[in-house]
């Protein structure tokens, strides 16, 4: 074909217009075509704890049940690898990406890249910086637990079932992480409304068993009148139990231990009477995540945030629910 100056101008003008139309359409999160089965990606952040393993298992199970193809990657605790993982999913041409973003900011480029490639992204269990990426525009939605509510539920249980145990030591998660901030806020706000309850000390145990134990030992020694320990996760709660036992007290009797996460070991602790109550942070994302993807393909309106319901364990139900704990 003979390319004249006029045809070149014309075609480029048409091309430009098309891009602009497409560009305005892309302001919203890219759509998902209606199909019987999909090829979806799941970019996991790490697999070094039972919670993550349970989450992965739930996603794989649900994909198998529906006959969808699941492209699974594990970023092994590296945000950089996770960005690369998402890019390789884009290259493999998946229909949709489930992303459990490791950190709030570093994963933004991956989300933008998926959007530019026309692939919708659904965030799982952790969100991204809301000033840089928005639900409904850059990604479809965020599915996860409400960490503030988890803290509130622990506090509500304590207010109702404390039986005179009111002096609290709080073991916080890693300073600055969103579960630590929110679990503290939810709990502290409820406690502040009840003047008979008092938080004697609140220190970070970094979500780790060894650190949680050491901090609990120190705080128990400095505050021997404490009769409640609230830990932001199971690992620190289990560490705190060792600390209580080392101090010659009986967990569950002298000191109530409260926790969040609800892994099998902690629920067993409830059955044994060492942990008073634990709020589950539900790792079973499969059903909700895949349902959301189908709803999105159907063109339903997806809320900006979808809460994955959490189980609650105390002495009343722990025994019968032990089998279902992750």
């Amino acid at each position: 074909m003979n390319v004249t100056r006029r045809t070149l101008l014309l075609t480029s003008a048409i091309g430009l217009a098309a891009t602009m139309v497409a560009g305005s359409a892309f302001a919203a999160s890219p759509p998902l075509k209606k199909k019987d089965t999909y090829k979806v990606g799941f970019a996991q952040t790490e697999s070094n704890n039972p919670w993550r393993l349970a989450q992965t298992a739930s996603m794989q199970e649900e994909a198998k049940k529906r006959g969808w193809q699941l492209v699974y990657t594990d970023a092994a605790s590296s945000a950089a690898k996770q960005v690369a993982d998402v890019n390789s999913m884009i290259a493999q041409g998946v229909d949709l990406i489930f992303l459990a973003p490791r950190e709030e900011k570093p994963l933004i480029p991956a989300i933008k890249a998926a959007k530019n490639a026309g692939i919708p992204v659904i965030l799982l269990d952790r969100s991204v910086d809301p000033s840089l990426a928005k639900a409904g525009e850059d990604y479809v939605t965020f599915i996860g637990s409400d960490f503030i509510e988890e803290g509130q539920r622990v506090a509500d249980w304590l207010v109702a079932n404390g039986n005179g145990k009111t002096k609290i030591i709080e073991l916080e998660g890693s300073t600055g992480s969103s579960p630590a901030n929110d679990r503290k806020k939810g709990f502290d706000d409820v406690i502040a409304k009840h003047s008979d309850f008092k938080i004697l000390a609140s220190q970070t145990g970094d979500f780790a068993r060894d650190k949680g134990r050491q901090v609990a030992e120190t705080l128990l020694q400095a505050h021997p009148d404490a009769d409640v320990i609230y830990a932001h996760n199971d690992e620190m709660a289990i560490g705190a139990i060792s600390a209580i036992e080392a101090a010659g007290k009986v967990p569950g009797k002298d000191i109530l231990v409260l926790s969040i996460d609800g892994g099998k070991e902690a629920v067993q602790g409830v059955v044994d009477g060492k942990i008073a109550a634990v709020v589950e942070c539900n790792p079973r994302f499969g059903p909700k995540a895949f349902d959301t993807a189908v709803a999105y393909a159907n063109g339903d309106k997806i809320p900006e945030k979808i809460i994955n319901p959490d189980q609650f364990y105390d002495s009343k139900n722990a025994k019968e629910l032990l089998g279902t704990a992750y």
Binding site: T175, Q203, T218, L219, Q221, A222
Partner: peptide, 13 residues
Amino acid sequence: VRYTLLSNGVPDA
């Protein structure tokens, strides 16, 4: 030092 700071309510950082 760590024990002193912790038990007197100074943050770990």
